[in-house]
Write a protein that binds this DNA or RNA. Structure first.
Lengths: 140, 140
DNA sequence: CTTGTTTACTTGAGTGAATCAAGGATCATT
DNA sequence: AATGATCCTTGATTCACTCAAGTAAACAAG
């Protein structure tokens, strides 16, 4: 989603700021990925491989079709960032794991994606707690 | 972006909540669009046509290539939600405007996309002001 | 053990977003 | 009238995403 999500009509100021936040966050994420020549989806998957895991687990966590994950992982594999090893316990399944290069790129991505860190860093510890509490309440 | 944006590693709780918010927001936007058989990008463009305007203006506001807008608008036109009239003052340009049907769908979208409204509605007026202030500060 | 079912993943087809390069038409300037 | 910039479209390409079908292996009876 390169195009922003909203606003249709923002009735309250809080809604407008919320929208701004989401927009800036998404763009920052995309930009950080682009710096490493990754698509946002690739960066996302790569970031969820701190431990090796199956394709199905990824699909479920990310809430998308398994075939989508297959494609993304195939591309990450072609880039040398990920391997797909057969699962010795279940020969239907395959375990996806980051390569050392994948670790390196993932680390660089984490460094490049400064938005959340920076935004939170603009707040005092007290304010951070307030924000956390407010957002939790807002999320229901 | 159906796949979530983040987290790589969330160092603070505030960052984690921020990520949650963005994720839920994006998914809600997508779901609301899907209810009306629109893509998120289509809903986005449709929502920015309260006044008729040129393709270029849309592209600039949405930060993407003009040819991308062309495609999206062509599809919206095929759905009968939008018209592209020639600009009498400049025959290179075309003015995009919602049709009555487009207005209707846009309104239904605004109704279906309840996330921001609902989230903010969980907070008292005071809390809403606090949230607005905190997010403004965090956004820098 | 073989039959049938479920599970895990891949493949293929199709849609749409997005970008880039190139082109046509029109405007604006000299 | 010629030049160059502007507005938009077209074409080519990549990728994300979904759905329908298919393969292969696990699993559970009979």
């Amino acid at each position: 989603m390169a195009l922003p999500s909203g606003p249709v009509t923002t009735s309250s100021e809080a809604e407008a700021v919320l929208f701004d936040l989401v927009d800036v966050y998404d763009r920052a994420y995309e930009a950080a990925a682009a710096e490493l020549s990754l698509s946002p989806a690739q960066a996302c998957v790569l970031g969820r491989l701190d431990e090796r895991r199956g394709m199905g687990a990824l699909a479920e966590e990310l809430g998308c079709d398994a075939s989508n994950i297959t494609q993304i992982v195939v591309r990450l594999e072609a880039l040398g960032l990920v391997t797909r090893e057969p699962n010795p316990r279940d020969r239907r399944a395959r375990l996806v794991a980051r390569t050392p290069q994948g670790d390196e790129i993932n680390h660089r991505f984490a460094t490049a994606f400064t938005f959340a860190r920076t935004a939170v860093g603009r707040l005092s510890p007290d304010e951070q707690d307030q924000l956390t509490a407010l957002l939790r309440k807002a999320l229901g």
